[in-house]
């Protein structure tokens, strides 16, 4: 293959790999916005907590192997990886429930700005709470403090070179798991009673309540679902890119928010497409122009979308009913 094509394909592989992470985080933003019209700025930090939950769980579940001991079989490693991922998703679902119950629910019905400011407060609480020194007497070093930790390799890494384009099993697994989760989410939203109730709440919470839909429970469930997806994204990201620290959810969180706006905030397929598009745009801009623009591109996209298509790619301009 010509060198230029190899380079382009490699950029596409890299961009998709990062884009799936943005897409999974963006789903949490978009679902919460859909039901509450609230931008949950703490979502990027839920993603961070997901990575640390996985880190601590892996530390318990995957014991340090003695030098020379045989590596665990692929089946065993897969089981461990699945357990770590599901465990982290459960922890984050609980965290999502707690944040909704204690930070947002008491403010429901107040001005929307109040909740937004609270969201920023929750975000800072998680970021700086996790930077405190570990509490003595806990079985794990928690909070982790500001020193970065390194996520263990849950599965043995395999690298392939296809005509010069490097690809690893992590990229493939990451994409497969992300797509599976998104299809699952789409089924939940459109094929289950919970999903129907969620869409009803999104359409009009007051009328939904009159129809006997338990609005508070549906909102709590939405938070749990979105937070669990963030945890899955965190594990998928932390295995190939192992550095985790308390502030590392900040930028992916902001970028995923941009991805959600790009796709049309409130739209599930929009979040997926927005995430992938943003990952690719970042990669191509960094690869072909100056790499110092890499982080700027997301916010340039945000400004352009807000200027020219405020409803995003998949958003429908709705007429406000009076």
């Amino acid at each position: 293959m010509p060198a230029r094509l190899v380079e382009l394909l490699q950029h596409l592989v890299n961009g998709l790999s990062v884009g799936t992470i943005y897409a999974l985080i963006a789903l949490g933003y978009t679902m919460v916005y859909g039901v509450l019209k609230l931008i949950n700025f703490a979502h990027g930090d839920v993603y961070m907590v997901g990575a640390f939950s996985g880190y601590y769980l892996a530390g318990r579940l995957v014991p340090e192997r003695a030098a020379g001991a045989p590596p665990p079989g692929l089946a065993g490693a897969t089981l461990q990886a699945a357990l770590v991922t599901l465990g982290a998703m459960a922890v984050c679902a609980l965290l999502g429930l707690a944040i909704e119950r204690f930070a947002y629910r008491p403010l429901r019905g107040r001005a929307r700005l109040t909740s937004l400011i609270t969201a920023i407060g929750v975000s800072l609480l998680l970021e700086y709470g996790f930077q405190l020194q570990p509490i003595r007497g806990l079985p794990v070093a928690f909070p982790p403090g500001p020193t970065p930790r390194f996520f263990p390799e849950l599965l043995p890494r395999a690298d392939w070179s296809l005509g010069g384009v490097s690809l690893s099993n992590y990229d493939v697994i990451g994409l497969a798991v992300a797509v599976a989760l998104m299809i699952g989410l789409q089924l939940v939203v459109y094929r289950t009673r919970f999903g129907t109730a969620m869409r009803a709440v999104s359409f009009d919470p007051k009328v939904a309540a009159l129809m006997g839909i338990p609005v508070d429970r549906i909102i709590a469930g939405t938070f749990a679902l979105g937070s669990a997806l963030a945890a899955a994204a965190a594990i998928l990201n932390a295995v190939p890119r192992p550095q985790i620290h308390p502030l590392f959810g900040l930028l992916p969180g902001l970028k995923a928010f941009v991805a959600a706006v790009l796709g049309g905030i409130g739209s599930v397929p929009g979040a997926m497409v927005g995430g992938l598009a943003l990952g690719l745009a970042e990669e191509l801009v960094a690869g072909y122009t100056a790499s110092s623009f890499k982080d700027a591109i997301a916010f340039t996209v945000l400004i352009l979308v807000l200027l020219f298509r405020p409803d995003g790619l998949f958003g429908r301009a709705r007429v406000e009913k009076v």
Binding site: E7, Q10, H11, N14, F248, G287
Partner: peptide, 15 residues
């Protein structure tokens, strides 16, 4: 500093 992913830059350098 603190970036997670350096592959965009590395791919460009590789070329």
């Amino acid at each position: 500093a603190g970036d997670q992913d350096f592959k965009a830059q590395l791919t460009a350098i590789k070329a």
